[in-house]
Amino acid sequence: MKKTYFTLVHRWGRAWCLASLLFMLCIPLSVSVYFNAWPPLQGLMKGLLAVIPLYWATAVIEVVSYAPLMGSGACYLSFVTGNISNLKLPCAIAALKSAGVRPNSEEGEVVSTIAVATSAITTTVLIAAGVLLLAPLLPYIANEGSPVAPAFRQVLPALFGALLGGYLKKQWRISFVPILAGVAVLLLAPAVQAGILIPLTVIASLAGAQLFYKMKWVK
């Protein structure tokens, strides 16, 4: 049963990835056809060469980093809908914690898929509603002078602080190593991108936890 469900998830995920790839390519194609506006190849290549080395390298790192952290269904869904590190992954982690299931179990697979799917639907509906219905209000919210703007600038510390708080109770001993490693990297290179910083802190965290486990400081 277990094998069958996981096999099916991968089959569905592959089919949806292919469909998403074709669908995504249809967006610029439709724009070009509808407006009869084909960009000059040389200019287009300049633009692509400026972003592809970074984007594609980051994509490889993200796939390798996030795949073991999320369930299969959650992973396929997250990479189509985007906003993984700042929304889908923390949402999946929060759901796994509150449901009290292990991330790598079949229950974890189910719970993380439900969490990410719900999050994807909520985000898509809210963005659509925001764009289509609340457009006059959103500039007020996003505006630098808006009273709520400071809250939106601090979404990431608020979100990841809450997640860390959830871990501190049980895992406080192993929490400090990756944070100190991250701070050390940022002291040397304060503008380092999240795509580079995440693998470094994950490696530091795994190494620290392994060391503490061997020294019997954690069980």
Partner: peptide, 25 residues
């Protein structure tokens, strides 16, 4: 051990953003 490593991997990810709130530009 696997559960500890899994928690450590999540904490590593969380730590990247925590450390940016502490020392990122």
């Amino acid at each position: 051990w696997a559960d500890l490593m899994s928690a450590a991997a999540f904490l590593g990810l969380i730590a990247a953003f925590i450390s940016r709130a502490i020392a990122g530009s």
